[in-house]
């Protein structure tokens, strides 16, 4: 199996001296292509930091992150931004849609940032898959939480990234909606051949994952 995302001896420390917080401590992780990996840990276990490191949002203290065979250490901001918008799609707990843009605009935004024209058929297909057809012109603040998160998923998928990184995607949703959103995330990952890495503290959510990685104190437990 082909590794799409690798972390090698990854460390992220905050502070110094006695106050050092080892958010991620010497962690090795390999995610294979097409996998659905759930990273489970209590809050404060360093799982969010790990996701940020994997997505190139944050610089590691030491160690490497290799995305699709490319080590992102030492890349310029410009190159990192490019990797983020081409290889990675993010889904956040609080949806983080751009409030001034409608659903469609939000979805095609990463493409726009990359200077690409959206593949309309593909985007429409995603929208249909996620059941957002009737909402494309709506503004984010008129949508329910589930709809917003589905829009976020569509946004993450629209640029055809290899990896979707989701940070507590169901954290703000009720159980039923959360289940549905997870199902969709899974479905869209499967349908469009994306690797899915989901961070959650809810083990019930992790049930549907191919593999569950438990993080404790910045390391992989067990």
């Amino acid at each position: 199996m082909k590794a799409i995302l690798e972390a090698k001896k990854l460390c992220k420390y905050y502070g110094s001296g006695e106050n050092t917080v080892r958010a991620v401590d010497n962690l090795d992780l390999t995610v294979y292509h097409g996998e659905f990996v759930a990273i489970v840990g209590k809050s404060g276990s360093g799982k969010s930091t790990l996701l940020h490191l994997l997505g190139g949002l944050d610089d590691p203290t030491s160690g490497d992150v290799i995305i699709d065979g490319k080590n992102i250490a030492g890349l310029s901001d410009e190159q990192l931004a490019k990797i983020r918008r081409r290889k990675i799609g993010f889904v956040f707990q609080s949806y983080n849609l751009v409030p001034s843009l409608n659903v469609w605009e939000n979805i095609v935004l990463p493409l726009g940032l990359d200077g690409r024209k959206p593949d309309e058929k593909y985007v429409k297909d995603i929208i249909r898959t996620l059941g957002l057809e009737s909402k494309v012109k709506s503004m984010p603040n008129t949508l329910s939480g589930g709809q917003q998160q589905r829009t976020a998923i569509a946004r993450a998928a629209a640029a055809k990234p290899s990896i979707i990184l989701a940070d507590e995607p169901t954290g703000n949703l009720d159980t039923k909606t959360g289940d549905e959103v997870m199902a969709m995330l899974r479905l869209s990952a499967k349908k469009y051949g994306q690797t899915l890495v989901v961070i959650t503290h809810n083990e019930d959510i992790a049930q549907t994952a191919d593999r569950t990685v438990v993080i404790e104190d910045g390391r992989i437990a067990g």
Binding site: S100, N102, E105, V108, L109, G112, L113, P118, M139, T142
Partner: peptide, 17 residues
């Protein structure tokens, strides 16, 4: 103002933002 919908554009760019 809370407009419910927005006509929007099919392609987004910095200018659109």
């Amino acid at each position: 103002e809370r407009s419910k919908t927005r006509r929007g554009r099919t392609c987004m760019s910095i200018w659109g933002l």
